[in-house]
């Protein structure tokens, strides 16, 4: 919880997500550079069904793994930078290990496709190197697994939000609340339950099945690995469209559904009242 933990976690994120993948890509660049005298002036960079069909300077192959790894690492580090209570969440770790995967894939894969072209006069004669990308994918997975263990152990979100107080309703009064999210989605809560619709998703949780309703704060990348209809490694799932306030519903024996929506407190209190009214006494 201290800022010291957060600082050391951030240091580890930079090391495992930024420095190590870049070092691996740099090593690949140095190896490919050392082959430069043996390579044709133009090398094959892409293979089609009938052999090489894309060509470029060897420098392109030498610099690509470093360039892409660096760019991707910065992109992912920025998106997953925010820590909750100074700990890394499982999804956040998974997203960070993808940097190591990309680095391993490109470093080994591209180096392999260059390796097979040593001593060639003409790149059109380059042998099929597709399987080197498979080897690269394997190396990426292995590097990703190593990165997972080098990162701090996955923590859990300790702040589990606020239980929504049921909306005060008079006898015979019912309430319905509806709110759009990101233009295309809509969340509606009423006596019968919770409905979330948009982009082909139609999710309905009947009020009878709802056990508790909370208002929580959600960070899309750290907790759900991104945006959209998502599953978190902590067992929650739902529609995560932006960072911030969300309704979290526990239903049907402990399943947890999350939807990010403005004015979540009102929606949660409508739903909480509906669940209380339908709950068998």
């Amino acid at each position: 919880m201290t800022s010291g933990t957060a600082r050391s976690t951030h240091r580890r994120m930079i090391l495992v997500g930024g420095v190590l993948p870049t070092v691996v890509a740099l090593a690949a660049a140095i190896v490919m550079f050392s082959w430069l005298p043996e390579l044709p002036e133009v090398i094959a960079t892409h293979w089609g069904p009938s052999g090489p069909d894309g060509f470029g300077s060897p420098w392109f192959a030498i610099l690509m793994p470093v360039g892409l790894t660096l760019a991707y690492a910065m992109f992912v580090l920025v998106l997953s930078w925010r820590l909750r209570d100074g700990v890394l969440l499982a999804n956040q770790k998974l997203v960070l290990t993808s940097i190591a995967f990309i680095s391993g894939l490109l470093s080994v894969g591209i180096t392999g496709t260059v390796y097979v072209q040593r001593g060639l006069e003409d790149a059109t004669l380059a042998p099929d190197a597709g399987w080197w990308m498979l080897v690269g994918a394997g190396a990426g997975l292995a590097f990703g697994a190593i990165a997972w263990f080098l990162l701090p152990a996955a923590g859990a979100v300790t702040d589990d939000g606020i239980e929504a107080p049921p909306l005060q309703l008079r006898a015979d009064e019912i309430a319905v609340w509806s709110q759009r999210v990101r233009g295309l989605w809509r969340v509606t809560a009423g006596p019968a339950g919770l409905s979330v619709t948009g982009l082909g998703v139609r999710k309905f949780l009947p009020a009878e099945s709802i056990e508790s309703v909370r208002v929580v704060q959600v960070s899309p990348v750290p907790e759900f690995g991104g945006w959209g209809y998502r599953v978190s490694l902590d067992g929650r799932f739902g529609v995560v469209l932006r960072a911030g306030v969300a309704i979290e519903v526990k239903y049907a024996g402990g399943k947890r559904f999350v939807v990010t929506v403005d004015d979540a407190a009102t929606g949660a209190s409508v739903l909480s009242a509906a669940a209380a009214a339908r709950r068998p006494a």
Binding site: V176, G190, A192, S195, F204
Partner: peptide, 15 residues
Amino acid sequence: GERLPSAKELARTLD
């Protein structure tokens, strides 16, 4: 310009 919930969706949640 905002789209209201469909009649079906609103009816379902309102019962």
